[in-house]
Design a protein around this nucleic acid. Structure first.
Length: 819
DNA sequence: ACTCTGCATGGTC
DNA sequence: TGACCATGCAGAG
């Protein structure tokens, strides 16, 4: 056996003989040296090695310190439903649930020291774990297949009546399924001698013929029921004699006083069965020993609501190191949820698992904190729906608004431990900039989605919004690519819907016209023809499609030859390259084939500082550039795969600031392009504008289009037959995919009454506006190696690939197509 | 005419 | 096929 180091990082003693320690997340066991293994088996591992680590908590019963959140000792405690923990010894005899702290895969089940095994074998279902995590994952709801459904519990909820009345700490450690739990003695042991109350209720109205319905409650005995004064439902106050009763299943309960509509009664479990055995309660618990429905399917559904481990949003309310936040579930806001109605449809399973039991449709008020610590009161209720229930939180509008959430964003529900308070958080969806923001660039890719998913879940990888750049990179780093099953695309807002991407590789590129101008470059060795419109000179490239390349700064070298300056992606030094060099979107010194002396980043910059300043007059002065630089930095990681275009666009803007508005006009040029106001500003030309510029442009565009049409027809006639036969099938498929929008636009442009006209104020980003103007916007930019003076418009292009040349080609193709 | 409420419907899995 | 859930819609206020 080879010599190994002890797995214990504090030890690392080499040994060729090792013993098995805890099971790691990988499923393997930690290999410990003799000494560490002994310590581990004596349950003193954390005491010995992790004493200075955080995460120590006291057993609520005996006060024993346990290192929670550590994979080594996670089997040594249970989470109390009312918050806090209890060591396994104290919990022995009344344990009914696996430690919910670490859910998933069964194979993560760590081994336990021998002395613990019999205990756990008798009183625990398999403890599952995925290792120490700073946040407690929600319990078994999301991994039902791993844990017997009869071990699933409704999670504890501590609810307040917001007016400062006593808090009712509710413990719900009973389970209908656990035999141990059905013993009154165990039950009464639950909360350290506190008196507990239980209730066995009558069947719900309307559910005549119900076989069984049981609710159990457990309260601490300092329970002081104070009912809302204006509780209209108080007439329905359920008073149950404080007495012991036995359920039909033989469970013994102590019944207590239950205010029905205050946020205080937290059920342990309920079961409502109709005559035919249908579970009307929506109970998450077992039926005939099995979970309802297909466990696998259910798990998949629930996957949608699995909370992501995001913690920073709760920092404000969890500054106390002892506070642990248990993410419960999350949900993307649908249009309905975020609408004015103020109703948030709650996932049924989640609502039943984590929210208080409600038996009446009116439900009960629920106090939920937001991440800032503000307390919100919602009405948690349900509607009967297809023999089931539909749970909603009512009155969420103010809260949603305060969190500035909208459809597509995600609301998260968590629980603060040990307080047990529900906490509602929000996560912005890195939404597409609204149309009035003058979106600079937005790249949407759904490459993290499973095929056909079409999920509207906004993952930070999915949407990159440069306007919201301050969060972009951060988000991308923070959010792991996740796959969520979304059943409906309808979870999109109207704006989101347009971002649905049918093809897995399709991305959407939106850049402003101005940027597009900056990015477009004449094809190599192609001399543009010049068109004069209203005294202004425009370049046209009729013989070849323009391409998109890295923005450079044109200049003249000492010999009077035209050159261009390009900045190295890595060292940011400016290098001189020939004027006709077409450079990739990411260019670094090592690609400087023209000047080998400066083909290393370590080589000195040719330009002096003064020259550079002269060349980049606004450098270091224009805050927007700084912003862009910062943005660029932010995006550096994020855009690794998508960066080419984004960088292009970003730098395009930066560069455009350094030049004239028209990328190829000289400084000081007063042509209409160069003197145009910044994007989105200034007066706009109306569709019907008949100024000389518009008329000229229309005329010129028309002739241009006609010319292109003619050429296109000729070309097509020549090559169509040959193409159809020789073109590989796959390629044809690709073309069809990348032509997704083209086709759409083509179709739209056919029906557009404005075909052939120029809209100088196109705002393609306002796609919801089904106006033909915006619909046909992208084709309109065809004229566009010429002025971008309708620069408030946004150029949008669906793209199969990110290569800049491909974009150029696509742009060109689209130009042809719409020509 | 508008909002609110409660339920029904239909798409999706 | 059943469950879930987004959303539509009718009726009440």
């Amino acid at each position: 056996m080879s010599t190994k180091l002890c797995f214990n990082s504090k030890c690392k003693e080499p040994s060729d003989k090792w013993r098995r320690g805890w099971r790691r997340r990988t499923g393997e066991y930690a290999h410990l040296c003799d000494r560490c293994a002994s310590v581990y088996e004596d349950e003193k591992f954390c005491e010995t090695f992790h004493l200075k680590s955080s995460g120590w908590r006291c057993c609520e019963s005996c006060g024993k310190q346990i290192h929670c959140g550590c994979i080594v000792s996670f089997h040594m405690f249970v989470l109390l439903d009312a918050g806090g923990i209890e060591c396994l010894t104290c919990a022995k005899g009344c344990i009914l649930t696996p430690n919910p702290a670490w859910p998933p895969p069964l194979h993560f089940l760590p081994s336990q020291p021998e002395r613990m095994k019999d205990l756990s074998a008798k009183s625990w279902s398999p403890i599952v774990g995925s290792g120490p995590v700073p946040w407690r994952q929600a319990p078994s709801l999301f991994n039902g297949s791993d844990v017997p459904s009869n071990m699933k519990l409704r999670m504890p909820v501590e609810a307040d009546v917001s007016s400062g009345i006593d808090r009712y700490r509710i413990c719900e450690r009973l389970s209908t399924a656990s035999p141990e739990m059905k013993q009154g003695s165990s039950f009464e042991r639950l909360v350290n001698g506190n008196m507990r109350h239980g209730l066995f209720e009558k069947p719900q109205n309307g559910n005549t013929g119900l076989n069984v319905k049981e609710k159990r409650y457990s309260f601490v005995n300092n329970f002081k029921p104070v009912f809302p004064k204006n509780d209209s439902s108080s007439a329905n106050l359920k008073l149950a004699t404080v007495s012991s009763s036995k359920t039909e299943t033989g469970n013994e309960h102590i019944c207590g006083l239950l205010p029905p509509s205050s946020a205080i009664s937290i059920p342990v479990a309920q079961k409502v069965c109709s005559r035919n055995g249908m579970d009307l309660s929506g109970d998450t618990h077992m039926r005939n020993g099995k979970g309802r429905g297909d466990g696998r399917v259910r798990d998949q559904l629930l996957l949608r609501y699995r909370p992501q481990i995001v913690g920073e949003e709760f920092q404000q309310i969890s500054s106390d190191s002892k506070t642990v936040i248990t993410p419960l579930f999350e949900k993307m806001l649908s249009a309905s949820d975020a609408g004015r109605i103020g109703r948030l449809v709650l996932p049924k399973k989640c609502a039943e698992a984590y929210f208080p039991l409600i038996t009446q449709p009116e439900g009960l008020p629920l106090s939920i904190l937001d991440v800032k610590g503000n307390e919100w009161m919602f009405q948690f209720r349900f509607w009967p729906n297809n023999n089931s229930r539909m749970y909603v939180l009512e009155g969420i509008t103010p809260c949603i608004q305060s969190m500035q959430l909208q459809a597509g964003d995600v609301v998260t529900f968590s629980r603060l431990e040990p307080e047990g308070k529900l906490v509602m958080g929000g996560r912005k969806a890195l939404a597409i900039p609204s149309s009035d923001q003058g979106a600079e660039i937005s790249i949407v890719g759904n490459n993290t989605f499973p095929p056909g998913d079409g999920s509207g879940r906004y993952n930070s990888v999915d949407v990159i919004s440069v306007n919201g750049h301050e969060k972009v990179a951060e988000k991308i780093l923070e959010d792991k690519p996740t796959i969520h099953n979304k059943r409906k695309n309808s979870n999109f807002s109207a704006k989101s819907k347009r971002l649905r991407i049918d093809d897995g590789d399709m991305i959407e590129l939106k850049i402003t016209w101005k940027e597009a101008q900056g990015l477009m470059r004449p094809p190599a060795k192609i001399v543009p023809s010049f068109v004069v419109v209203e005294g202004c000179e425009f370049e046209e490239f009729e013989e070849a499609e323009p391409v998109i390349g890295r923005p450079t700064i044109p200049g003249v070298d000492n010999f009077g030859e035209k050159i261009q300056w390009i900045q190295c992606e890595d060292c940011f030094k400016w290098r001189k390259v020939p004027a006709d060099a077409l450079l990739p979107s990411r260019w670094i010194c090592s690609e400087n084939e023209w000047d080998l002396d400066r083909s290393l980043c370590s080589s000195a910059e040719e330009l002096t500082k003064e020259q550079l300043e002269h060349m980049l007059p606004t450098m270091n002065k224009d805050s927007s550039i700084n912003e862009i630089t910062e943005l660029d930095g932010d995006l550096a990681v994020a855009l690794e795969g998508l960066d080419a275009l984004a960088n292009l666009a970003i730098q395009g803007e930066a560069s455009s600031e350094n030049r004239t508005k028209h990328p190829r006009h000289k400084p000081g040029c007063t042509c209409i392009v160069c003197i145009q106001p910044p994007s989105g500003k200034g007066s706009k030309h109306k569709q019907s504008c008949d100024c000389m510029v518009c008329i000229s442009l229309r005329r010129r565009c028309r002739t241009l289009m006609e010319s292109r049409d003619r050429k296109k027809m000729e070309k097509q006639a020549e090559s169509s037959c040959h193409n159809l036969q020789s073109q590989p099938k796959q390629l044809r498929g690709k073309v069809s995919k990348s032509g997704y929008l083209n086709e759409t636009n083509e179709r739209k442009s056919e029906i557009s009454p404005l075909k052939g006209q120029i809209d100088l104020n196109i705002q393609p980003e306002r796609e919801e506006d089904s106006s033909p103007v915006s619909d046909s916007a992208p084709p309109k930019m065809k004229c566009s190696l010429f002025p971008s003076f309708s620069a408030d418009g946004v150029f949008k292009q669906h793209q199969k690939s990110l290569g800049s040349n491909v974009i150029g080609n696509l742009v060109g193709k689209q130009m042809q197509k719409d020509g």
